[in-house]
Each structure stands twice: as C-alpha cells, then as structure tokens.
C-alpha cells in the first residue's frame, strides 16, 4: 500500500484548529509568516515570542512535537547554508571557539535559521490540520483562479496514481535483476520516466472523456463552500494578531 499524498502529513482531528475553514487558516498563516519575515533579525525576544505562539497553536491542534520535528527535515539544506554564512560573510569578525566568524554573517545565519524554521513549523501546522480537499476549496474561496485550483485538484487526485505507476515500474525492473550502478543505467530509469509521462498524459485524455460523459462543458462545478463565520475569522486572526503585538512590543521596548 502506498503512502497516500494526503495522509502523509495530514493528521485528522477535531481540534479548534482543525475546525477552522481552510481559507481562514491559509490567510492567517500568510499574515503570520509575513510578520515574522518583516521582523528585524536582532529582535531576539520577538522570535522567542513567535515560537511560543506556534507551540501553543500546535498544542491546541494536538500535533505532537515529534511529528513536526520529523517534517522539519525539508529545511535542512538551508540550515546548512545558514550555518555557512558566518564563515563566508565579510565585515568585522569575532573569534568563537577558535573560529574567526563574521559578525554580520552570524546575524544573517540566525536570521535565515529563525525565520525559515518558524515558517516551516507554521506550514507544517497548516498541512497537519487541513486535508487536501478543504485546502483546494479554501484556495477557491481565496479567489485563486478556478482553472489553477482545478489543475491542483487533478494533481492531488492523481499524484498517488502516478506515483504508484512509477513504483510498479521500479519493482518490475528490480524483479528482473536491475540495480542502478553507473551512468549507463540512467537510460533505463529515464525510459521509465518517459513511459510514465505517456501513461499520465493518456490518462489525462481518458479522464477528459469521462468528464465529457458526465456533462463537463469547460468549467468545474464548485462543490459546497460554506462561508466562514465571523467567529472563525476572529479565531483565525488570533495567531497573526498576537504576532503583530509581539513585534510591536519588542520594537517599543528596544
């Protein structure tokens, strides 16, 4: 059984965070991350405050820290970049444990690390508490062009199907003793990718036929989308609003 695209990150639940409409959550996330990104790097207290906010949200949503930690590997490449900055950057230098590090580089590295991490954790919270379908409905409500939402919807639906095709091809290859070892073997793997494209495209054509057969005339019907209640909006703005308060407070106190 393949791990489905949707249930790899999504954790079904019935917390207040789960119940918020998806478009409210997306906007809240965007607003929160914008505040984080706009915060000066040396406002250390503010970043601590943001972290506390996210931890509270995670606790409310019932998303365990281990789940978040495991998903955070996506930011590893940039963590390494951030750790390099103190070495690479110019300007005045300080000695830390025998290493000569750039002061501005240290700050820049911290800046990327802190903001990137907060952004990733916030995004993980969104993905963990919102299933793919609600997210698509949410995007539609946020006036993302309908055609784009439709394409995303087909992608979400078929990513697993195409992924399974790819996996089956690999199993078929390996069952006949194929083990990729050198560049010459790239041909075999890429041929699989070529076949995968043909399969995917032809499936697209068949899906189109199936859609026509059920009265598709160029636009998808938007299936249910209950508007968000005022209370939802209030709850949704809690996170970015608190972030703004923290940002302003640290700025005023400094």
């Amino acid at each position: 059984m393949s791990g489905g695209l949707t249930h790899r990150l999504h954790r079904p639940g019935d917390s207040p965070v789960h119940r918020l409409p998806a478009h409210v959550k997306v906007l809240a996330l965007l607003a929160f991350v914008l505040v984080v990104v706009a915060t000066p790097a040396d406002a250390f207290a503010a970043f601590a405050g943001y972290a506390v906010l996210l931890a509270t949200a995670a606790a409310m949503a019932g998303v365990p820290g281990t789940v978040i930690a495991r998903r955070m590997v996506v930011e590893v490449p940039f963590v390494v970049f951030a750790l390099l900055l103190p070495v690479l950057a110019g300007g005045p230098r300080v000695d830390v444990l025998g290493l000569s590090l750039s002061e501005s580089g240290l700050l820049a590295g911290w800046n990327i690390l802190a903001k990137g991490t907060l952004g990733v954790v916030a995004s993980i919270l969104l993905a963990a508490t919102t299933d793919a379908r609600s997210l698509l409905v949410g995007l539609a409500r946020l006036r993302v062009p309908a055609r784009l939402v439709e394409i995303a919807s087909f992608m979400v639906r078929y990513a697993d199907v195409v992924g399974d095709d790819l996996r089956r091809m690999r199993i078929a290859r390996e069952s006949r003793g194929f083990a990729p070892r050198h560049l010459g073997h790239a041909r075999v793997v890429a041929q699989g990718a070529g076949a995968l494209f043909i399969r995917s495209y032809e499936r697209g054509e068949r899906v189109h036929l199936a859609m026509l057969s059920r009265g598709y005339a160029g636009s998808m019907p938007l299936v249910d989308a209950t508007p968000a209640a005022r209370a939802d909006w209030l709850r949704g703005t809690a996170l970015p609003a608190a972030a703004v308060v923290i940002a302003v407070a640290t700025w005023a106190l400094s």
């Binding site: 919807s153 995968l196 160029g218």
Partner: peptide
C-alpha cells in the same frame, strides 16, 4: 482549451513524481 485542467493536472502529477528521481 477545455482539456487544460485534466491534462495539465496529470502533467503536474507526473512532474511531482519525477522530481523524486
């Protein structure tokens, strides 16, 4: 034309899959 959504959607799924190579 009207085939945009299914064909682009399936191609997106394909790109998503081959990005794992």
């Amino acid at each position: 034309d009207e085939r945009t959504a299914p064909l682009a959607g399936l191609t997106a799924a394909f790109v998503f899959a081959v990005q794992m190579l």
